[in-house]
Amino acid sequence: MSDTSLQKTSPGRRMRLLAPPFLALPAVLFLVVFFVMPLIDNGMRSVISNDGGFTLSRYVSLLTDGFYLWIIAQTVLLSAGVTIISIMIGYPVAYFLVRKAGRFSGLIIFLLIAPLLTSIIMRTFGWQVLFARRGLVNNLLVDQLGILSAPLRLTNSPEIAIAALVHVLVPFMVLSIATVLQGIDTRLEESAKILGANRLRTFFEVTLPLSLDGIGTGAILVFMIANGSFVTLVLLGGGMQTLPLMIYQQFNTTRDFGMASAMSMILLVIAVSCLFLQLRLVRRKGT
């Protein structure tokens, strides 16, 4: 807390503070010790070579080597894919929730949030139970219905990992969009209809443009969480490589801490740019 910030706060404003500022000290200390300092340490580790000198070689190879670039691209593509699918699934659900559900909206919100109440490990194993070689789905297809002669290989593929990620991230999308949809005056849609727009055009001319902010917020949330997802990809991804998995590998298998640090810094940059985008979006709305 600097002098200038103290000068800027007028006495009247300071009187209205709920508690004296020093009460924030434990929280600040906690963050400094367990968040800021490790982050600085991590940053330092990524630019100090094994013999103790300064080096950017890790970043150079991460950003030029085709193998690493492909992993970064895969990470971003996976998150983008999950985000797009979440929008396509989440928007209709949010629309139904706000405009049609009526007294059932509470139940729908509960059903949406329910998956978030189970631990991620349990949820992921749940998908395995469903899609394993002798799992529920294959059993149904082969033994019960006899559609297939041999079980399908459903687990350990990027598709199932994406499905699992979408499953857990869609609620964030739905709630972001629903909040904005709730705020749209239905009389705007009625105005469009009276002026000759059918339901489809009303949606694309009025409802969709006015709910873009909700889509934006939801997209950034989903993208960022998918970007850092680890357990789902380890258990269901079928050898798909993304940055979080590589970082884990560098620590546990290669034990190249410097490289792991550099990778996590890149992951951090992607996340921070997302937050920056969100801030710009919010600011645009404010003006």
């Binding site: 009389r187 705007l188 105005s191 000759g196 001319e205």
Partner: peptide, 20 residues
């Protein structure tokens, strides 16, 4: 007929102009 085929004009209390 649905509203968009009735060829009407309507003015609402809160104006209902498209803000975007």
């Amino acid at each position: 007929l649905p509203p968009h085929k009735r060829r009407l004009g309507m003015v609402f209390q809160n104006y209902s102009l498209f803000p975007h």
